[in-house]
Design a protein around this nucleic acid. Structure first.
Lengths: 338, 338
DNA sequence: TTGAAAGCGCTAACAT
DNA sequence: ATGTTAGCGCTTTCAA
């Protein structure tokens, strides 16, 4: 069986109190005793029992992340990267990461409630915020520590990291307009997601600035999957007057749109321009390579995680609300209008 | 503060033991008492403290999953899907899932050791087994419960689910040969991964069966990323005598290979055939759509998780070693040799 | 500088 | 059918 401090105490002939304090480097323990205890612990292969420590300290040193998965075949590269960022940061700061996979909805909220209620985690990370986010509303009223990737439409007075989606789409639209495009279509994202509105706002205001507009037939809502992008693009290309450029609200949908265009024999980047958002690693190796907006997903994951852990620890936060400026990555999927 | 069983006991005027047993539905408690206790618990919003239960029961009801991430920009759709399968199954069976992200190597092994030593989890899930897998060797000798996705090269006497990779590549190669291809190149995977050998074996034996062979210049090792596939394909296409078909060991590399071919103006499916492995959701929406081998990744995730939890619970396993037959999905990235 | 004792919230063997 | 008691492994007053 695993040795406990009791075993160490017996071995070195001291009380368990002394052992505990020696191990935790209290300064009312003599150096000799510390030496002795540590040596014994080492020899016996002692490792503290995390559960016992947690019960006593009433903290878990664990953060929770509930991934909003859409269906079983959920496979979004965006989330892998974000998860890696959060995970690495957590481990560097001495925290574990509890992950659950839930489709948005009732079960999801149940998970939040239960995570909070059972004290399984010290705080939660929220991904892909919704305008009117029940998760955030709940955590706020519960007074439970959390940090989010994204804002909400109302009061965003909580720790978050977000990208400036409005600026991102401004970059995209300006790029397309400079290339001479006038018939620009948008494959947007579900309306309940906050970022959809930011990006939409950036797109609209930029279009307007140039005296143009986006007709309703050029405004389609995608589901952020490749299939969704494909289907929306089909519809756009079926129009009597199809667009010369399609701006998708994420890379995955842009890939789907590229497939749809290519299936009709259109040369992407020449006969039609297509853009994405996120700059997932695949964007660089698609054919043609994808013009998109760069979001440092991995870094955002780290940052959100750090924000959360500092909140948990009650450490001062120099910056609680972070908004990052994305940058435009011009590649081969866009070109001058035909 | 949160109510404890002590609070309930005080309120209903019973001992905490009685409360505990009433809550756990012991049959030596009268129905009236149970009613009473449950009602009180309900009213007070009582929720058991998981940490305390764990300390007492010496189990965590948590499984661990250490994702082998290769670099920060880790974004493999394969793992998202697997993770979702594991996560959903775990939650259905009442388990939490602790996820860590580690590049294979020392730190990774440290994580395994510490997970085992600190009793943070009741069992571990191993993904993407290596031929000579130190994780498995360690867990075996430690007598710690685990289940794997994949086998090892030596003694695979542990619970696992794996796909029949040899059969998968047999399907692929036969498909290509039927299409008239004779110059078939392989973009394989790192040699330390077990599945690489299975797939390689299937490819070689099938090729030989048809009296053909794969020259060393047609045998490249990829790193399972899109970029890796792209680079390998570049090399293949630069050969004086380039292959007419390329079989990649996963879909991501196949996409990279497609890009490389298309960049040279080759029409994939006509002038060159390219195949993948996994059938990730994107395969269906690439351009052209990807001929590949179907692996039920989500289901495998669920299955491995179930295997692990049953092992933890000491439940009898009707099938400890599961090997699934993959199926061929023919799409547009392959066609008759030009 | 050290130890005794209490307690974190819960379960379970053993009485009654 | 219910209560007493001990204990899971640890931290932390408080006293010596």
């Amino acid at each position: 069986m695993k040795p406990t401090i009791k075993d160490i105490a017996r071995k070195v002939g001291k009380s368990i109190t002394t052992v505990s304090r020696a191990l935790n480097d209290y300064d009312d323990i003599s150096d000799e005793t510390k030496q002795l205890v540590r040596q014994a612990a080492q020899e016996m292969g002692y490792i503290p029992n995390a559960t016992a420590q947690r019960l006593q300290k009433r903290t878990t040193d664990t953060i929770g992340l509930i991934l909003p998965t859409f269906g079983p075949r959920f496979s979004d590269p965006f989330f892998s990267e974000f998860l890696t960022g959060v995970g690495n940061q957590a481990s560097e700061m001495g925290f574990d990461m509890l992950v659950a996979t839930r489709a948005p909805g009732n079960q999801e909220m149940q998970s939040y409630r239960s995570d909070v209620a059972t004290n399984r985690v010290d705080g939660l990370i929220i991904v892909r915020t919704r305008c009117d986010d029940p998760r955030i509303a709940f955590l706020k009223q519960a007074g439970f520590p959390f940090a989010a990737f994204g804002r909400v439409s109302g009061d965003s007075n909580f720790p978050y990291v977000d990208e400036d989606g409005s600026f991102g789409l401004t970059l995209i639209i300006e790029h397309l307009i400079e290339l001479g495009h006038r018939r620009i279509a948008l494959i947007t994202a579900p309306e309940d997601l906050t970022f959809t509105h930011h990006r939409l706002e950036g797109a609209h205001s930029t279009i307007q600035k140039y005296g143009l507009e986006i007709g309703p037939e050029y405004l389609l809502v995608g589901d952020l999957t490749q299939r969704g992008g494909y289907e929306c693009a089909q519809n756009l290309l079926n129009l009597a007057q199809p667009p010369t450029a399609i701006a998708a609200f994420n890379d995955l949908m842009a890939f789907g749109a590229m497939s749809a265009a290519q299936e009709r024999g259109l040369s992407v980047g020449k006969q039609i321009s297509i853009t994405g958002f996120d700059n997932i690693p695949m964007a660089e190796h698609a054919h043609p390579t994808l013009t998109t907006v760069q979001q440092p997903i991995y870094q955002i994951g780290r940052r959100v995680c750090e924000l959360l852990i500092r909140t948990i620890r009650n450490e001062p936060l120099d910056e609680t609300q972070v908004i990052l400026k994305p940058t435009l990555i011009v590649r081969r999927s866009t070109g001058p209008v035909a």
